[in-house]
Structure formats: C-alpha cells, structure tokens
Amino acid sequence: MLLPHHNRYAYSAITERPTYRWPEGKQLAFFIGLNIEHFAFGAGLSHSLSTPLPPPDQRAFAWCDYGNRVGVWRIFGLLDELGLPASHLINTTLFDYAPQILGAIKARGDEVIAHGRTNAERHGGMWERDEARFIAEVRDAIIEHWGQAPKGWMAPWMSVSGVTPDLLDEAGFKFVMDWPADDQPIWMKTRKGKIMSVPYPFELNDSPQMLVRQQSPDDFSNAIIDQFEEMLEQSEKQPLVFSLALHAMIVGQPYRLRALRRALKHICNHPSRDKIWFTRPGDIYEYCNTLPEGALPLPSGNAG
C-alpha cells in the first residue's frame, strides 16, 4: 500500500551512514534553543498552565508575559554563569514590545532564530502567497533589528504547510528546526534545491513535557541528564546533536530554574566535557555545509 509522503527526505538508517567528527574532534554537539514568545491580549492562541478562562484570559496572558519580564533575565543570568552560548527562537513583535531582550542577545553574541511574528498565530493554514509574505516580513524584521539575516527557522507551534520548506529556501533561509526526525542534521528537498534540518527536540522540551505531560521539574532535569549521558555514549560511534528546548515563561519560574541549573551544571562539569561542542544551530549548519556530499543524508523524490 502506497501512503501519502512529503518527499522531503528519504529513509536513512542512522547505523548505515558515513561518520565524521565535529570541530576539533568533538563527539557531541550541544545547543540550547530558548523560546522567547509574545502573545496578543484576549485574541489568538496562548499557552495555558490551567483551565483556560473566557477571553481575554488575563491570567494566561500575564503568565506568558512573566517570561519576558522576569524569566528570560533569570535564564540569561544562568547561561552567563555557566558560560553557555544559546540560540533564541524569538517572535518579532518582541522587538518593539521589549527591545531590551534583543539587546541582551546581541551583547551575548548569541544567535536569533526566526520564530514567526507572535505565538498567538499559526501560519500552517495560510495560502501560499500569504505565507510567503509572512515569512518575508519575519525575515526583514530580524534584518532591521538584529542587523543580519537569520539562517534558521522554527515555526510557532511547529506549524507548517505543504510548501513551507520551499518558501523558506526561496526567502534565503538555510535550515529549519521543526522536523524532529533525527539526531543528526539532514538535507531536505525543496522545489528549487535543498534546505538543512537541524535537530530540535519535541520531547526534551519543557513545554510539552511540563505543560502537557505534567512532568515535574526534577523529572525534566533527570531527563536532560539521562539524554545527555546516553547521547554522549552513543556519540563515540558517530556525531550526534543534543538539543534542549526551553521557554522563558516555563523554566524561568524559580523552582524550575533551580532544576534546570542542576542539569546544566551536570553537563558543564562533566569529566568528558572536552568531547562536547557547545554551539548554536547556525554554527552546526555552517560546519555541516562544508562536509563532503553524502556525509549528511541526502533528500530524494520530488517535492511539491
């Protein structure tokens, strides 16, 4: 039976791929993706910690806004304390709402990943021309405020249409992070070429784990440590990407931040720290783009 297929990438068993190493012979690439999100008041989508109230649901809005007013600054402090780089999946409406956040990202020398205009909307259901304008608007806002074009894209809510990879490629994006299919970067086919998929976690992600599955902060901290230890062991055989997805309004809460601190200290103080490449998705893309053809799984089939 022939099932519908996206035709973006072909099946590739991770055990059958050629091997390579990260820069300086590192085994495991590790990056943090911090989601910094802005929501409309009384309209559109929102995260919810409890039973949603009727609009305008000021409780949900204010809880999300805590991430921008308090949580993100606590997380920046933790990253500074541990000397960790990060990438920031940021809604462009934050550039006007809270410009201090982008200023701190610039001061840290971190990477900005395009994350739509606001998480109050999903773009997966847009008509193609509307989606193309939407993507261009986000790209141009980042160029204007950050001073350079973003390489990476992560859709709000990981929502995509059937042509999103094509439109991103045509708008100049180099990689996507919303196809959680692998532990290594892979190439995906577009109608005019290809775009890289850089691993980003759907599971090791504080939002689905703690808001949806109601995992405790200690459970999440232990999951980070177990994921790290297992991937470090597996990476002795082949290079892997260990990515950690965080949200400012979630792990920015003090008791969750304490648990996150324990996990990150475990990683940063690990005896095998010299085997870890502490990096950002854009650097992973740039390095992988220099590898010989065939080092990364190649796409096949026809897109569209």
Rank of each mutant, 00 (worst) to 15 (best):
L79G: 03
L296S: 07
S221I: 13
G109F: 11
I75V: 15
D178G: 04
E24D: 15
M196T: 03
I101G: 01
I195E: 04
N35S: 11
L102T: 05
D219V: 10
I36W: 02
E286M: 06
F228H: 04
A155H: 06
T190Q: 06
I36P: 03
M210D: 01
V163E: 08
F31W: 14
R74V: 00
A248Q: 05
A295H: 09
H123A: 12
W73Y: 15
A181D: 07
G124A: 09
D182A: 15
I14N: 14
E128R: 13
T51Q: 11
W277N: 07
C288A: 13
W146R: 06
W157P: 07
D219I: 02
E121A: 10
V163H: 15
G103K: 07
L291H: 12
V251L: 10
E131C: 05
Y11S: 11
Q148H: 05
R262V: 09
L28D: 12
L257G: 12
L167D: 08
M154L: 14
K189E: 08
E144P: 05
C268Q: 02
N68S: 07
S159M: 09
G25T: 09
E37H: 02
E37C: 03
Y97S: 04
H123F: 12
V251E: 14
P54F: 04
Y20F: 15
W146D: 11
E229M: 09
H123P: 01
K106Q: 13
P281V: 06
A10N: 04
F173V: 13
Y20L: 10
L78E: 08
F61E: 03
R256Y: 00
Y285S: 00
P185I: 07
F278I: 13
E37F: 03
Q215E: 10
I142W: 08
Y9N: 06
E170V: 08
L34H: 01
G116W: 09
W153D: 12
R69S: 11
D218E: 15
E233P: 00
N91S: 14
N222G: 01
